[in-house]
């Protein structure tokens, strides 16, 4: 199991035990975390799983994937240098304890 904490726009925190190998988006949806939509199911088609990786974790989650930048252009909330599509962050043991912040809107 890999622990992930989602911090909602209003500051509310939800911590879940996710399955290794799932994406940050899949873990959120499977655990009923509000604030991540993931409409296309991780096909990098919709930009509704936008998250901001916590500063302390930015290095370990790595850079954006090819195509991710382009899709983020269509995200509903502000894009920062820590913006990622959470469907493209795969949960590994090294990411145990990961913290991501959620935008105000996904649609």
């Amino acid at each position: 199991m890999v622990q992930v904490t989602y911090v909602a726009h209003d500051g509310a925190e939800t911590t879940i035990d996710a399955t290794e190998g799932d994406s940050v988006m899949q873990a959120a949806v499977a655990n009923d975390v509000d604030g991540i939509v993931g409409e296309c199911g991780g096909a990098m088609m919709c930009a509704t799983c936008h998250c901001y990786v916590d500063e302390a974790w930015a290095e370990r989650t790595g850079p954006r994937d090819e195509g991710e930048d382009d899709m983020l252009e269509g995200a509903a909330s502000e894009i920062t240098e820590r913006s990622r599509l959470s469907c493209q962050i795969k949960l590994t043991a090294e990411l145990d304890g990961l913290v991501v912040h959620l935008p105000e809107e996904q649609l």
């Binding site: 899949q26 949806v29 499977a30 009923d32 296309c40 199911g41 096909a43």
Partner: peptide
């Protein structure tokens, strides 16, 4: 989700990854 049935699911076979929301 139906879209992956003709794509990723055929390759990976992970039915649990298709579920849109858990029972809870």
């Amino acid at each position: 989700q139906r879209p992956p049935l003709s794509k990723a699911y055929l390759k990976e076979g992970r039915a649990e990854a298709l579920m849109l929301r858990p029972q809870s």
